[in-house]
Design a protein around this nucleic acid. Structure first.
Lengths: 342, 342
DNA sequence: CTGAAAGCGCTTACAG
DNA sequence: CTGAAAGCGCTTACAG
């Protein structure tokens, strides 16, 4: 009386029970119109009853498209990527596709493992890996599969890029700070090896050197894009001596950590210091005061990148190189930033 | 001069170039210790040079474990699920596993499609599908694969459940409101067919009928767990006539929409009305005033459920039924709620 | 330590 | 409209 062997029920089991060949069963599950409605119904009923579910690996191996897009992100966590995924998933779903989502944390060999795991499963790739090594790694992407790359322009025409206008966004932020009279300014960067962070840093510094005069004092602190780094750098930013009047955080997450510290210490934004962030993630507007920040449309970026992948999957042979899509940033003014008062 | 055929490079290509059999190449990629280090290095080098990546579908079909857990959520979007995924992904990564994440929106046949897509790809399942039909659907989960089910207790010992203590949490919220002197109370529910929402509604109403006296006026409004439903119901909640002094939103998301409306109209929380939410998602603490809410540890739930799946994958035959893990809720007091003043 | 061969569960020309 | 058969790219006893 042992329980029935828990072997997977396969197409053979269904075929046998239905007294047809496996080819016919396969046709039913692929909506092949050659199968007459009556047969189709009968087989579907039997399959349902046997709880048959086609094995995806087998289907894919045998040459079927899998209607799956492999997505690799730095982290799955947080509103920023949540917004991105939202755009991407909604678009994929519209075309009957699904997302296979994983994350890689600054680790080249892990990226390779993941690419491998998705190899033979995903019909296309969406990769957000803002690390210097990305170019070399991309060579490992399976031939003939389209891949959208976020955040890095590549020469290889197999890929197509979606870029955030980090440089100009940060440039804009710095100009605005200068325009509003600030002369003692702090820049909080992200990690050195994060490409987005680097570009923002360069843009910011460029604006300071282009537009700031002799008298501008720029303090540069290295953060890591995470909330707690904004918190931890706060004492340094707010030290008494020669304190800046305005601070730019290279992403909103760090600004949030800073808000926490300020509120704990009973200090006021923007009275004690003006703050600008980058990203405009959802809660930037919910903070008290609202966070002035450089906005770009992350949901849209997720959406557009999947659109392009789907287009490429459909027109496989036509791999014409395209110029990257660049998402502009714009300043969103809220209460966290005020002009310098003399 | 056409470009080299973009056929996938396979294990045969590598074997040929290395002058070994495919068995040996396979062993190298499976870290089989029988292969001497020298051969191993050589083959790895050749594979690297040829950009060979094993085909996952083929590996899985041939009997390999895929080190992948299939995750099905109602939505990928928003902090609530982001937190859940964070816990789940972190835990999976610790054991060298990855998550295959997709979402299903209240659509039984889509759930089946997804289960199919993951069938033969995922070694285990993590399913959060708070819909009534879930029991029947679960029969389709491939035999012998462990599956953690969030939010629904099941008799079938193949599955193990993780539950949020919705009923008691809502009960607690209502008692607190009563204790604090409120007698005119509004309950904003989620959608009828959402199981979490239903349990919260029942718990809330039970407390009112257990503990509230004759004089308690309960207004019940149906929302849908989304931010805009809190916004849209706000006029009804804040109507002049017989206005409640306190409102319970069945999740924090709806409370957020309510905050927006209140701020637009220049009305004050908690002066004009006290507010309690449910979930304690990240920004509940960031709102102004902070949102009083029923907290439970969603990150932990993601983590624990993956842990249990991994345990089951490791001890495949031992499918002893376990009682569900229940995540208790507790009241987190912030500024959005004050006692009724006479 | 290594190779030949069966098998994983499907799809898809091909022939009828 | 339907079936027999080859093939997708791998893993794993089995034999040596």
């Amino acid at each position: 009386m042992k329980p029935s062997q828990s072997r997977q029920v396969t197409i053979f089991d269904v075929a046998e029970k239905a007294k047809v060949s496996i080819a016919t069963v396969s046709r039913v599950f692929n909506n092949n119109p050659l199968v007459p409605e009556k047969t189709r119904k009968r087989i579907l009923a039997i399959a349902e009853q046997m709880k048959y579910l086609p094995n995806s690996s087998a289907r894919t191996l045998a040459g079927n498209q899998n209607k799956t897009i492999g997505v690799i992100l730095p982290v799955i966590y947080g509103i920023f990527f949540s917004d991105f995924l939202y755009g991407a998933e909604t678009r994929a779903r519209e075309s009957g596709y699904h997302l296979l989502v994983t994350s890689v944390q600054n680790n080249d060999s892990e990226l390779l493992t993941l690419l491998g795991k998705m190899n033979g499963v995903a019909d296309g790739f969406l990769i957000y890996y803002p690390q210097p090594g990305i170019e070399k790694l991309l060579n490992h992407i399976p031939q003939g599969k389209p891949a959208a790359i976020i955040g890095k322009e590549l020469k290889d025409s197999r890929f197509f890029s979606f870029l955030i206008d980090n440089f100009n966004g940060a440039y804009q932020a710095a100009s605005y700070m200068l325009n509003q009279g600030h002369r003692k300014i702090t820049l909080v960067t992200g990690e050195k090896k994060n490409l987005d962070a680097e570009q923002r840093k360069l843009g910011f510094k460029k604006a300071i050197s282009d537009l700031g005069g002799e008298e501008v004092k720029l303090q540069v602190l290295e953060g890591n894009f995470k909330q707690n780094s904004g918190y931890e750098l706060a004492p340094e930013i707010m030290r008494e001596k020669n304190r800046s009047t305005a601070v730019f955080f290279s992403n909103d997450g760090m600004a949030l950590g800073f808000y926490e510290w300020m509120s704990e210490k009973g200090m006021k934004i923007p009275e004690d210091i003006s703050v600008i962030g980058f990203d405009d993630i959802e809660w930037a507007a919910l903070l008290q005061p609202g966070l002035t920040t450089m906005k770009f449309d992350i949901v849209r970026m997720g959406r557009d990148s999947v659109s392009e992948i789907l287009k490429r999957i459909a027109d496989a042979p036509d791999q014409t190189p395209v110029s990257p899509v660049v998402y502009q940033t714009r300043l969103v003014q809220r209460g966290s930033f005020i002009p310098l008062r003399n």
